[in-house]
Design a protein around this nucleic acid. Structure first.
Length: 133
RNA sequence: GAAGCGGGCCGGGCAGCCGCCGCCUCGUGCGGAGGAAAGUCCGGGCUCCACAGGACAGGAUGCCAGGUAACGCCUGGGGGGCGCAAGCCCACGGCCAGUGCCACAGAAAAGAUACCGCCGGAUUCGUCCGGUAAGGGUGAAAAGGUGCGGUAAGAGCGCACCGCGCGGCUGGCAACAGACGUGGCAGGGUAAACCCCAUCCGGAGCAAGACCCAAUAGGGGAGCGAUCAGGUGUCCUGCCUGGCUCCCGGGUAGGUCGCUAGAGCGGGACGGCGACGUCCCGCCCAGAUGAAUGGCUGUCCUCGACAGAACCCGGCUUACAGGCCCGCUUCCCCA
């Protein structure tokens, strides 16, 4: 009875390397709080921030990069704005692949309510330059 | 045509590519945010907890009737207010159950009183006593309004009409309305002041709740092994700790369920002024858990607002670029 679910899960193994180049499966995301803590407390963790976007990254023991998002309600009050911000980051992460690190992107506090998509995008390009030179 | 009133609807479209979430029949198939998903202000379902019954406290509601699972919602009606009208707005029970409050002004803010007056009497001509509340003055508000009679002057003192109270009558399920009779007339305002009356309400919420369960975490029990080793004690009797196997519940990390077929949606018929109800036919329409709807390109237009499901429904309230449709009112012009 308890094994049934496990069997189903085992029968559909996650494809480690997806066929398409620009994908964003679950294995590329940080989900659990211990994964986040690993990055924040890592000895080789590095940080960078712009006017709107801030990020922390640290090497992981995998070939691929993984993304975690930390967008607080204090930073962006409206949930529509939080969704938009996360979409922009995910899209950029997907189309500009990194490798061998865990990256956490968050939104700076005190950002004025109308979220400027263009400015966020430009900052992401800038930050990517610092992360993967 | 102008000004206005009420109601309803849409919330960029199409094509291609790169991605994301769910489902299965695994096909490169199907489905994938809103009118408010929002605020969390009411009501209910659902779940757990508590509970003999009832009352008190506390809270909510407050014209009548109906609708509904229920409501603080909706519909219809009554009353009041605003508008020429279409229409819109109203917490709209009770201050002769009690208590409190009422600034300033004013004589006086309530079973009280008389500043200026008016009238009568007395007078030492200074004024005093009595009557009165029509007039002046104050105020948001001062024992109902207008007129006539009446009087020393006045007064519902008397009369008519209006207003108010009471009584039965008529219409209406009722709120209430109407006409009639009757009483000369109760008595300031404030109940989103305490309060009184009537009706309703147990508490917490899906992080509810249920299930499966790791460990170099840990509790209990049984058996085996051993008479052992370590610690404590001057020694004995002792006490504490330690091995392996099996069983038992509790439960952290984590996972699974709850999780979407429902007071559901779209037609039609019938009943009802209507809210709504009944029946028939058809449809399946997000279920994520760092949490999915984007991005890029082309094209068209009026260049796209407010804003993102998190257990689910019914309401209310608030936000909203621009646009469309229907009905109605008043006025102007033409025929």
């Amino acid at each position: 009875m308890p094994g049934a679910a496990a069997v189903v899960r085992d029968s559909s193994p996650e494809p480690e390397e997806a066929p398409g180049r620009f994908t964003f499966p679950r294995s590329r995301r940080l989900a659990h709080s211990h994964q986040f803590q690993n990055v924040y407390r890592h000895r080789k963790a590095k940080r960078a921030r712009g006017r709107i976007v801030a990020c922390v990254w640290a090497p992981n023991e995998q070939s691929v990069a993984r993304l975690g998002l930390a967008v607080s309600k204090r930073a962006l009050r409206r949930s529509a704005a939080r969704n938009t911000f996360k979409r922009l980051v995910r899209e950029h992460f997907r189309l500009h692949p990194l490798s061998g690190m865990d990256l956490i992107v968050s939104c700076c506090r005190g950002v004025r309510p109308p979220l400027d998509r263009r400015a966020v995008r430009l900052e992401l390009v800038d930050l990517w330059g610092k992360i993967a030179p």
